[in-house]
Write a protein that binds this DNA or RNA. Structure first.
Lengths: 186, 186
DNA sequence: AAAAATACTTACTAATAAGTAAGTATCCAA
DNA sequence: TTGGATACTTACTTATTAGTAAGTATTTTT
């Protein structure tokens, strides 16, 4: 596949994660890549097209990560830890996550992009629910809440705390993530 | 103060909570109010001006709520419950909260708006930290985490789950909030 | 009654946005 | 070697945006 195409997706994603979907333009991408605005339209006729592709890329990336973890025989703790590490990395790079960034713009998104975002979100929350459930059964995790609610809690915490971290000074994201994990022990 | 001015703030806030800051325009407001675009500029010369006023209004509203709860002698449970009820109401109205909506757009906001948003966020998180601390001291709340992390967790959960609720079908927001509160008992 | 403040409208400007049609250069395959 | 696919550029259009300058009607103050 085309290198330019991939760089557009990468740059578009970064712009969404820093400025938000409705604040970035094709010009932002084209000037950064040293090409013309129309060249971006060559690969992605509409912004909705690009948005959808970016979410689809995120879905693929997540599915690959899960497959990879399964093939490596990761237990529930390791899987959760790997997931949390993605957020720690995002925080280090001063970025949000795709859900936290596109979520508030949901109503302004194209139907296809909305559908992919729904797909991605359900994929993540359902996966989290499952590892919490099986981890609890195995005695790894201790919590009283319903697994789905607990999954939503952990996911929501990670998502919105990326925003908190950018806004509240001296917010210790790593310590926050540790607290989430510690909370699953007792 | 002017009725029109207040309706602009109210409408602007609603637009931020549904479409996001960068997706709404003065035209959205003026057509809804049956006035001209320039009339909105009469009250708020720039969009940054309006944004800042909206956040300031939210700060005032929050401070009034706290004062009100203090004068009514609300204990920590009742205070937390009142806070959570705001989110339940937002969810019922299919809205996000101002932090969850402006957070992702932070870098695109005017400096004054950013400062107010920081102020509001710290106000909320510090207040939550305080009631968690004193509630724990009194034996009302039971949790092992550091109060500040726990406050960030609860706040983040409430914020991002408003987004989750719009995106994931069959998400039971009330049950989710109950789970948060139950989690403070054992 | 005159002056001034209030609450707008009219009629714009300048910038930026997404998007497109038509053209060009390069490379690869038949 | 020629035709077509690929990867763009040039040069636009149309729409929308924030923002403004100048004018008008109404109310309030002096």
């Amino acid at each position: 596949m085309s290198v330019t195409r991939e760089r557009i997706i990468e740059l578009g994603e970064n712009l969404i994660l820093t400025k938000g979907y409705n604040a970035f333009s094709y010009q932002d991408i084209s000037t950064e890549l040293g090409i013309k605005n129309a060249a971006v339209h060559y690969y992605f006729p509409t912004k909705a097209n690009l948005g959808t592709s970016i979410v689809k890329t995120n879905i693929l990336r997540f599915e690959e990560m899960i497959d990879n973890m399964h093939s490596r025989g990761f237990d529930e703790w390791k899987q959760l830890d790997a997931f949390i590490k993605i957020y720690i990395k995002s925080n280090r790079e001063q970025k949000l996550c795709i859900f936290g960034s596109l979520g508030p713009d949901f109503d302004t998104l194209n139907e296809n992009t909305q559908n992919e975002l729904v797909k991605m979100t359900e994929l993540i929350v359902n996966w989290l629910t499952e590892i919490l459930t099986s981890g609890k059964e195995k005695g790894f995790f201790v919590f009283n809440e319903d697994s789905h609610n607990k999954a939503a809690m952990i996911f929501s915490s990670l998502v919105a705390s990326l925003q908190l971290s950018r806004i509240v000074k001296n917010f210790d994201y790593k310590s926050f993530c540790q607290a989430i994990q510690e909370g699953l022990k007792s």
